[in-house]
């Protein structure tokens, strides 16, 4: 009886969770004129017009391509630098380790609005403005510390006897790390990759500041639908629906890692 009540409550939560997304889907399948004219629970005059516009207009679909490129770069860079650092924090004691760890976390705490201007100056002075790598590097500011934090938790869950045994068996640190250790924490790597992807994908302010046309992400392009006649809700909704898909694909791949234990080392 208790279990039933629990799943009913969960069902209600999921219903409410999906409702705004359903509403956006509904809007995306209607024309703007129809949206404003009649209220309807279902797409009455079903049309794919909005999606066709996005997929045929380069200024729209390149937004998705740009965002995927820099988010991919950011995820790879974040994981590459965070893995050895997280190992150092989880295994070694060194001068300034705790201070360094907290300093890394502080980089998530600055309000982006004013910092965006010096970012613009910095990246234009090194000639990286309007490139994908600029946004990828800028997003490292908050994704690298988070990656170190999460990975350190996973790594601390692996007993140190495993390292010691491997070193006695004659493994060098890099070889041990790549062939034995990373496979042991692959759940952590999967979860970290998801978090990097997510936070880089949804960030707007830095991405918009650092790009002009060549690397402009979809989230910034979406603000264009405001025209003289007001918002084109149908188009905006279709673009919104399409921003969910890449991330949904990523979480589909890491879902088992999620389920198995983010917290392995943190318990």
């Amino acid at each position: 009886m208790k279990v039933r009540k629990r799943s009913i409550a969960l069902g209600i939560y999921y219903f409410l969770l999906l409702l705004p997304i359903y509403w956006m889907l509904n809007m995306s399948l209607r024309t703007n004129a129809s949206i404003l004219a009649t209220f309807s629970l279902f797409p009455t005059d079903f049309t794919l017009e909005n999606y066709i516009k996005i997929f045929t207009d380069a200024s729209w679909y390149m937004g998705y391509v740009n965002a995927i490129i820099y988010v991919g770069m950011n995820t790879v860079i974040s994981l590459t630098v965070a893995l050895p650092a997280a190992y150092a924090f989880s295994r070694y004691q060194f001068v300034g380790d705790k201070q360094m760890f907290f300093w890394l976390l502080t980089n998530r705490m600055a309000p982006a609005a004013v910092f965006a201007l010096p970012f613009f100056q910095l990246y234009s002075s090194v000639g990286l403005l309007d490139t994908h790598i600029a946004v990828a590097l800028a997003h490292c500011l908050f994704n690298v510390p988070l990656s170190v934090w999460i990975l350190e938790g996973f790594m601390s869950g692996v007993p140190r006897e495993i390292d010691e045994t491997a070193f006695i068996d004659g493994y060098s640190l890099p070889r041990f790390f790549i062939t034995i250790f990373i496979p042991l924490i692959k759940a952590g790597v999967g979860v970290t990759a998801f978090f990097c992807f997510m936070f880089s994908w949804v960030e707007l302010l830095l991405a918009r500041t650092l790009t002009v046309t060549n690397a402009k992400p979809i989230s910034a392009i979406m603000t264009r639908t405001i025209s003289a006649t007001g918002l084109d809700y149908g188009l905006l909704a279709a673009a919104g629906i399409l921003t969910i898909l890449p991330g949904a694909l990523v979480i589909w791949f890491v879902r088992n890692y999620m389920a198995k234990g983010f917290a392995l080392g943190r318990v």
């Binding site: 705004p20 809007m27 994908w201 707007l204 905006l236 909704a237 921003t243 949904a248 979480i251």
Partner: peptide, 23 residues
Amino acid sequence: ALVTLALPLLIPWNTIGTIWIIF
């Protein structure tokens, strides 16, 4: 359940605002 749960997290922040205007 996991994939559905993550959906709101994957939407760019300005789009979140837009969804709620429409909603």
